[in-house]
Design a protein around this nucleic acid. Structure first.
Length: 232
DNA sequence: TTCCCGTGCG
DNA sequence: CGCACCGGAA
């Protein structure tokens, strides 16, 4: 509706443009976690290749991955880039899950009241930072946690909802303040919509001419030009 | 701040 | 070819 201004207005506009989102392309909570590690600073299409390798090797489980020779695991992860580092990180995550005793059904231990402690424990895992931890909480465990990523910052900055140099926590709090507490679905959908916009429109070199937000975006109204000025 | 790294697009 | 990619650690 008209009259909304902040992230909720962005949410509604994007949902009208892209349709309802129910996200994370994965077949299990564990696969979500794997994807969350592999997609760090990496195009999703490359992550898909690595996950396909894992699936083909029947290695989409904690037990199998932990039993795999590290060099073999690295070879499976290779297409996702940063593969030696990601091998270490995925192993660290699997060791954590095994220690938790939740390798098979991790979502069952997740209750909303336990979110802060669970987030803290995830952050203690090598290779799990704030975005990865929150992606796991939201998309693997279904908990109402807003995920902040590079798209969120870029879009928020351009539309005038976020300043520069804000910490992860500050950005997250700014968005959370507009969302219904406890509603995981809206956080899931909003982040998914932001990713969709970020990939296809609000890119480093933006496509403002066809962007669903271009009528309300400060960037589109100002600095965004359909093409570079002609050469002198 | 710099490094980690393959991949597909412009 | 060069650039950017659903970051995090050193």
């Amino acid at each position: 509706m008209r009259g909304e201004n902040g992230w909720l207005a962005v949410f509604r506009t994007l949902q009208e443009a892209f349709g309802p989102q129910e996200w994370w392309p994965a077949q299990s909570p564990f696969e979500v976690m794997v994807g969350a590690i592999l997609t760090q600073n990496t195009a999703w299409r490359n992550v898909e290749k690595a996950i396909a390798n894992l699936r083909a090797a029947d290695a989409l489980s904690v037990a199998v991955i932990l039993a795999l020779p590290e060099s073999d695991l690295a070879e499976l992860l290779r297409p996702s880039g940063f593969y030696r580092i990601k091998t270490k990180r995925l192993l660290a995550l699997c060791q954590f899950l095994e220690a938790q005793g939740v390798g098979a059904v991790p979502e069952q231990i997740a209750r909303q009241a336990a979110v802060p402690a669970l987030r803290r424990d995830l952050l203690a895992v090598h290779g799990v930072g704030e975005e990865t931890a929150d992606s796991i909480l939201l998309y693997a465990l279904g908990l109402p946690v807003m995920v902040v990523d590079t798209y969120t910052r870029r879009i928020g900055g351009r539309v005038g909802l976020l300043g520069d140099h804000l910490s992860y926590t500050e950005v997250q709090a700014a968005i959370e303040a507009e969302l219904v507490p406890g509603d995981a679905a809206v956080r899931n959908a909003l982040h998914a919509l932001l990713v969709s916009l970020g990939k296809d429109y609000c890119r480093p070199r933006p496509r403002c001419d066809t962007c669903p937000l271009n009528t309300r975006c400060a960037y589109a109204a100002g600095r965004c030009r359909p093409r570079q000025p002609e050469q002198p």
